[in-house]
Design a protein around this nucleic acid. Sequence first.
DNA 1: ATTACTAACTTACGAGTAG
DNA 2: TCTACTCGTAAGTTAGTAA
Lengths: 235, 235
Amino acid sequence: MTELTVQIKPHLWFTLYTLMRLGATKTAIKISTTQLSEEMGGSQQSASRHLQLLESENMIERSISPEGSKIKITGHGQAELDLVLNELKWYLEGKEAQTIEFEGEVISGLFEGAYYISKEGYHNQIVDHLGFEPFPGTLNVRINEEDFDRRRKLERGEYIRLEGFKDGERSFGAAHCFPCMVNDELEGALIVAERSIHDYGVMEIISPYYLRRKLELADGDKVKVSFLPLRRSDS
Amino acid sequence: MTELTVQIKPHLWFTLYTLMRLGATKTAIKISTTQLSEEMGGSQQSASRHLQLLESENMIERSISPEGSKIKITGHGQAELDLVLNELKWYLEGKEAQTIEFEGEVISGLFEGAYYISKEGYHNQIVDHLGFEPFPGTLNVRINEEDFDRRRKLERGEYIRLEGFKDGERSFGAAHCFPCMVNDELEGALIVAERSIHDYGVMEIISPYYLRRKLELADGDKVKVSFLPLRRSDS
DNA sequence: ATTACTAACTTACGAGTAG
DNA sequence: TCTACTCGTAAGTTAGTAA
């Protein structure tokens, strides 16, 4: 396990699940602790405490007012729910978690990728955790705006984490990797910085191959990038 | 809510979920309480207690031996997991729970259906809970053996319950109803007796219509029966 | 090895109530 | 009304241990 997953406790998960069933994933919902307690079959006090705890773990966001709080499940919270969804699907429906696919077009990067990947700090971790020697550069793929939500969902899921490190004066942040297949042919991984709000319009793909040449890609060419979600590794 | 659902407690659900992730849905698994406790992050004693409780609620079956118990999740247990799966799908993937469809062929019943449905005890409940006046008879549909598993899954899900009753000397058992569409055209419901192992090969469909005539069906004709799973009604 | 009992401990719950 | 505090009680957990 690369991620330090603070396992959410069952009864808190259940509260989160109840909030989901009340619609708090899509929009903020207006609900009082009393209403929530009735929904869950518990006391107002318990509901209140659960909300405090969920908030402190960044699972929900609230705005409290005398006429009832507004509650919305955060990305972290949804990730927690997604995780269970994927596990249930896997075991009950016996599906390989279905791939999430993106169609995009190749664009030129600023050759920044090459710089980062050449850093030993990242390079060695990629070899260790992804199991390939990365080509010193990234393939940049522009995706459509209507796919941003699916990308967010992907990035909420499990990832392989590259630790941040210091190299002389500069310090490099941690990054998340999501293994993928490019054009159903070649392996690679989407890499995103852990901190910083990144541009959801562009995917940076690392790979053991020089994808542009191997797949004969030029700027503007269509590519397919498909991910099969990682599952939280047991123990 | 027609069913008296004994809500399983979150920490027990979590144990069930863990057993699922260890593969106890498909086959019995061999695991000791110590191993299980390590898997869940708790003590051996808690694992032991949880297993006892799950067993007493018919969620799992066990055979205990000094070299580690064999554990398998029962149909009831799977139903509990399925339920959460469906809810998560509904809210996170925004899908109408996808319909479960069966292709089968019309066969002749023994005109027993007519007898049962004419009984006031059932009749009135059908009107109340399903919202239609049932035609006094059932359409019997034979389905293929490879669909039995899907039927089992359907029947593990939520249902509308018709209470049993006494009519003079005879007593009639409770029944479960699963609303459906026949040939995507006409509403109806699969009806199965609550107790008694029934024949998974034949579906008995009740409907407000005389389906044989309305759809011009003769013995051996193909029909499609589609169900969209009920969701546990909130509160 | 196992499972599971009892007893001590720790956590979660909920009634009362303040802000 | 709200949320959330205190605090006594109930429930869940775990250490020790028996079978």
